[in-house]
Amino acid sequence: MEALSDRLDQAVAAQNERLGRTLAESAERTQESARRIHERLAVIDAARANIEALGGQVTTLAGILGNKQARGAFGEVQLRDMLADRLPAEGWAWQHGLSNGTRCDALIRLPFPPGPIAIDSKFPLEAWQALRRAPDEAARAAAERRMAGDIRKHVDDVARKYVCPGETAEGALIFLPSEALHADLHALFGPLVAEAARRGVYLVSPGTLWAVLGAMRALMRDVRLRSEAQHLRREVARLAEETGRLDRRVASLKRHFAEMQTDVQGIEITAQKITAAGARIEAVELAEAPVARAAE
């Protein structure tokens, strides 16, 4: 009985040790899975915050200079103010150097397609000013010929320098600092403007550039939203993977508990049988004791 009891105690102790070790390992795996889930949830919250920040981003209108007939740096100042007002800081670069060795006044960083778009703001104003100040028809005709030559040469320079296949978009922009200049070019030199457009060089005024920059800003925001959405989708997939792993580990833990319960029930049955056997043995000894005394 003592040996049987010792073996029973050893079996119960071994079962308890194995059960404790299994429960500890399962608890560690469960804690690790929970920690990873919390990390993924933190990343998802950060991505959601970025999306909300992008959705609620609002730009303010800055003081745009009026349509003055100026020259030199006037176009650059006006262009830079408009870019700063309409586009995020990372969406454009000022005085950007291209791989062909040229430097454009501004580069709008759009994704392919269409790709980054270079902007030139140094349109020659001398011929246009001479045209507006022409005292007679002869001077006006001479100013128109000069202006047509200036337009064609400037378009050639922009198309050659600022359109780089694989690096920039297939077109470039020429910023005209005056709505009046833009209107005169389309009214007096329509064929030249159309020819420039066929070569991928587009002449924009402050008003048209304002609308173009609004469309570009929407495109940039859409690209960033798609990027954040893809990142969020990847994180959700990882979270689903961790959740599946947690489900499998919980199922394994349930299986271990079921096995433990079966073993405990088996131990209880064995103990009951041993107790019953001991009771039967004790009953036999009590029955044989009077017979032995009578024989003496």
Rank of each mutant, 00 (worst) to 15 (best):
T102Y: 12
Q57T: 00
R103N: 15
E170H: 14
R245N: 06
S227A: 10
A240H: 14
E90F: 11
H186P: 00
M220Y: 03
L246Q: 11
H38V: 12
Q69M: 14
I267L: 07
Q69F: 08
E282V: 12
Q272G: 10
R233C: 04
E39K: 10
I269V: 11
A240K: 15
E228C: 09
N100C: 03
M147N: 03
R7S: 10
A283C: 07
D105A: 08
K273V: 06
V223A: 10
Q78D: 02
P206F: 06
A240M: 12
T102E: 14
K122I: 02
A3F: 13
I108K: 02
V77K: 10
C104V: 10
A294C: 09
R198H: 07
A13H: 01
R133P: 03
R280W: 06
L131V: 06
A93M: 10
H186I: 04
E137D: 14
N16M: 02
L185C: 12
V193T: 06
Y162C: 12
F74K: 01
R48F: 05
A240P: 08
L239W: 04
E288R: 13
L110F: 06
E288I: 09
V158W: 03
P114E: 02
T208G: 00
A46V: 08
E144T: 07
P114S: 00
R245L: 11
R36L: 08
P135Y: 05
V236P: 03
S121E: 14
R36T: 05
D81Y: 00
D85C: 13
T30G: 13
E28Q: 15
E17G: 01
K254M: 05
A294L: 15
L8K: 01
V223S: 09
A283L: 10
I108G: 03
G149K: 11
Q31D: 09
A73Q: 12
A42S: 13
A130D: 15
R7C: 09
K122R: 15
E144G: 02
L54P: 00
I108E: 00
E28G: 12
E285F: 07
T59E: 01
L98H: 05
I281G: 03
E288D: 10
A218V: 08
D9M: 09
E296R: 14
S99H: 04
D184P: 03
Q230A: 13
L79S: 01
A295F: 13
S99V: 12
E90I: 11
R233K: 12
E76H: 05
D184S: 07
F175I: 01
A53L: 12
L54W: 10
A106M: 05
A27R: 13
A237V: 06
R86S: 06
L203W: 09
L232W: 02
T59G: 02
R35S: 12
L173S: 08
R233Q: 12
A229P: 00
A180I: 06
